[in-house]
Design a protein around this nucleic acid. Sequence first.
DNA 1: CTGTTAGCGCCTTCAA
DNA 2: TTGAAGGCGCTAACAG
Lengths: 316, 316
Amino acid sequence: MTRKLTILDIAKLAGVGKSTVSRVLTNDPKVKIETRERVEQVIQESGFVPSKSAQAMRGGSAKVVGVIISRLDSPSENKAVSGILDVIYAAGYDAVIMESQFSAEKTNEHLSVLQKRNVDGVILFGFSGCDLSIVESLNHKAVVIAVDTGQISSVGYDNYGIIELAMANLQQQGKQHISFIGVDPSDKTTGLMRLNAYIEYCESANIEPSYQTGQLSHESAYELTDHVLKPETEAIVCASDTLAMGVAKRLQELDRSDVLVSGVGATDLLSFIFPNTFSIDPGYYAAGKASASLLIKQLAGCHDVTHLTQKAMIAQ
Amino acid sequence: MTRKLTILDIAKLAGVGKSTVSRVLTNDPKVKIETRERVEQVIQESGFVPSKSAQAMRGGSAKVVGVIISRLDSPSENKAVSGILDVIYAAGYDAVIMESQFSAEKTNEHLSVLQKRNVDGVILFGFSGCDLSIVESLNHKAVVIAVDTGQISSVGYDNYGIIELAMANLQQQGKQHISFIGVDPSDKTTGLMRLNAYIEYCESANIEPSYQTGQLSHESAYELTDHVLKPETEAIVCASDTLAMGVAKRLQELDRSDVLVSGVGATDLLSFIFPNTFSIDPGYYAAGKASASLLIKQLAGCHDVTHLTQKAMIAQ
DNA sequence: CTGTTAGCGCCTTCAA
DNA sequence: TTGAAGGCGCTAACAG
């Protein structure tokens, strides 16, 4: 392997000065088309690759954004990350993805690493108990997803709308006896907000509430099903597809194919396996795109703190 | 926000020369302990963070490895990535993750970006039709997962062992009529190799083979089920959990709870929803760890080309 | 239009 | 044990 080439080598090879090479690299319009072609020719042939580290150091921007996801294997976050990547690649940035595993400590570690790396910005998937103080100090170089904080831009899911959408849909189908299974309210968004949304909807729609909360797992929902299932129950709304999976499984065992189940997450597997089922899509992909666009806008100089709420829709 | 500090600022603040600060940063032993403490003190107080870009440019190593995954939402690759991250973080590296979406073109784009970024190494999740020529030129700075190539280190899954394990397990349970559903053999590993493993196992075990291949989707497997299901069928081995899900679903509809189904991937959902089911774990997490360890060893100077095969096991 | 000249922030000889 | 000086690869004035 030959030594790494630099613009100086290219300059010599092309018989020009190194700044001309630099100009070609940066698409500076004031280069004679002819010269440019010659330089590009040489670059091609020699397989020269400009050093990002040097560019980053010179220009101050590494064209990198950090993405701190809570769990790599979360389908919802995956969808959002896809949206993020699409946007930031298009804008010429790269992403370094890190996993917080819902640990505030790990998150802060990651943040400090990202800071060392001179990343241009950060997108953080928030979680209950996550410490936003460091992120806030990043000011206009960060966007938080899924939790709201006054000081820093965010993209949130419409936790109320999600549940309302499910409830309204069921009501339209003539269902009146609708139960709910969620997760522990110590989780502010998926837990508390969705539960409250259910309770409030029941009040305003004159539905007798019947609900249980537990862990975010199939098993937990499976076990809780019997506690909210009455002979007259017509539907069960779940705070997530994972829960819906457990509920639907239990209903199947009990031969209660009359009970409709709704989840949140747009997992195609759910309705494939259990027909009398539907899912609400909180708009993960769109939220990812939105957060990335927001960040890029801020990096470009827009210093407003914006709070977006992603609109939910019925999956498919 | 104050201007970014440099070692020079720290040097002045601490009343030393900038090289001394640099020495402190690099843990150079020849610094009077007293001086070091003073410098570290100042660094703490001022919140100085050395610029990785500058370090990278100077030293040549950015302490970054690129990871090119085929799909972010692939549960199997997620597990492997977790393994990779665990290892490389521990070794002081960071990861920039990119998604190839099974496109050779995108992969090459990503590779060129990574090269520009001066990453220390690359881990690539291979796929059929993926163009390894560029990766090969990276020589000892790359590891490929899931496909084998002579020239470059790799960690592969034991596609034969995976199927053999499933078959043997079924035989032990007294099953003799075992069918197979896989994916199109144009996919070399999940498709061709696993199919061949099935056929060969049948030969040596004197089992009448009965198989179909299609797409890697629940629907495809669902539809193919009837083609391999005979009254005497006792089990169906599937090339992946996704397929197994489709097959189990169809069997449930047909009331064939007598037929056992096996998948590949260790998805907990599979056996949760369908009891008469089990899954083979190709060792994704371990493979991820192995590939990262391999890469780091190579970056540290070991220039052997190593090919590892991850051992499969029955999930749980 | 193009070449020359400074640095960017850091690490590393080379002297002291 | 420490400071001064040089240079990594690149970009951005500043002159031609």
